[in-house]
C-alpha cells in the first residue's frame, strides 16, 4: 500500500542535485507524476499546441490503468529492496568493513533519494531492481571475503573517482551533464560485473571500456 511505500521511502536522503524540483514532493504526487508522464507525455517535446495535447490525452487514456499498475509494481520492487538493504547496511558496524559499507551507502544514496522518481529517466528506473539485487548479493558475500570486496573497490575507483568529482561539481551547480549521466550508468553496470556476477549486466562493461567512452565523450 501507499502507506508502506511511504514508510520505506521516509529515510531516503535529499537529492544530490542542487535545487532539484521534486525534492519535497509527497510520494503519492511523485507516483501520479510518473504515471502521467508514462501514459501521456512520452513525447512531451512534440506537444506544442492544443491539438497535439488533445491527441496525447486521447492516446494515453486507455493506457492509464495498465501504466499505473506498471509504475506501482516497479516502485514497490525498488522501495522494498531499498529498505531491506538500508536496514542491513546500518547493522554492519565492523570497522574493517568500513570501506565497503561506505561505498555501498554512497551508491544507495545516489540511486534512491527524495524525488528520484522524477529525476531519473524511466528507462533507467527499469534497471533499478537489477542494481539493487546486485547490491543485496554483495552484502551477503561481504562477510565471507571482505578482502575481495575491497580489491573490487580499488578496481572500481579507477573510473569512479574521476567521475564522482566531476558529477559532484555539476550537482552543486544544479547542472545535469548527460555525458556524466551516461558514465554513471556504465559504472552501475561495472559494479554488477565486479561484485555480483550472478546478475547479468545490460551491456558489456569493463574499466577499459568506460575509460574509452570517457575519452570519446570529451570528458
Amino acid at each position: 500500500t501507499l502507506k508502506m511505500l511511504r514508510l520505506q521511502y521516509a529515510k531516503a536522503p535529499s537529492p544530490p542535485l542542487k535545487n532539484a524540483p521534486a525534492a519535497h514532493r509527497d510520494l503519492e504526487d511523485e507516483l501520479i507524476a510518473l504515471v502521467i508522464d508514462r501514459a501521456f507525455l512520452d513525447e512531451a517535446d512534440e506537444i506544442r499546441d492544443e491539438m497535439a495535447f488533445d491527441a496525447a490525452l486521447r492516446a494515453g487514456r486507455p493506457r492509464l490503468h495498465a501504466v499505473s499498475q506498471e509504475v506501482h509494481e516497479l516502485v514497490s520492487n525498488i522501495l522494498g529492496q531499498y529498505q531491506a538493504i538500508r536496514k542491513r547496511l546500518s547493522g554492519l558496524t565492523q570497522i574493517n568493513w568500513l570501506a565497503s559499507t561506505q561505498d555501498m551507502q554512497g551508491q544507495l544514496d545516489r540511486l534512491v533519494f527524495r524525488g528520484f522518481l522524477q529525476a531519473v529517466p524511466w528507462e533507467r528506473l527499469r534497471h533499478y531492481p537489477r542494481y539493487l539485487r546486485a547490491l543485496a548479493l554483495r552484502l551477503e558475500k561481504l562477510p565471507l571475503d571482505p578482502g575481495r570486496d575491497q580489491r573490487w573497490i580499488r578496481e572500481l575507483q579507477q573510473v569512479q573517482e574521476a567521475w564522482r568529482e566531476r558529477w559532484q561539481v555539476a550537482c552543486e551547480k544544479g547542472v545535469v551533464d548527460e555525458r556524466l549521466e551516461e558514465i554513471r550508468w556504465l559504472i552501475e553496470e561495472l559494479r554488477i560485473s565486479l561484485f555480483a556476477q550472478e546478475v547479468k549486466t545490460a551491456v558489456p562493461v569493463s574499466v577499459k571500456r568506460i575509460r574509452k567512452r570517457w575519452n570519446e565523450l570529451g570528458l
Binding site: 500500500t1 501520479i32 507524476a33 504515471v35 512531451a44 490525452l57 492509464l64
Partner: peptide, 27 residues
C-alpha cells in the same frame, strides 16, 4: 515544459486522477 504539461493533464481529467489516487491508497 513537462511540468506544465503535467499540470494541464491533471486539470483535463480530474475524475481519472481521483480514481488513480483512490487505487494507490488501496491495499
Amino acid at each position: 515544459h513537462r511540468a506544465g504539461l503535467r499540470r494541464l493533464v491533471l486539470l483535463a481529467m480530474p475524475a481519472e486522477i481521483r480514481e488513480l489516487r483512490r487505487r494507490l491508497q488501496q491495499p
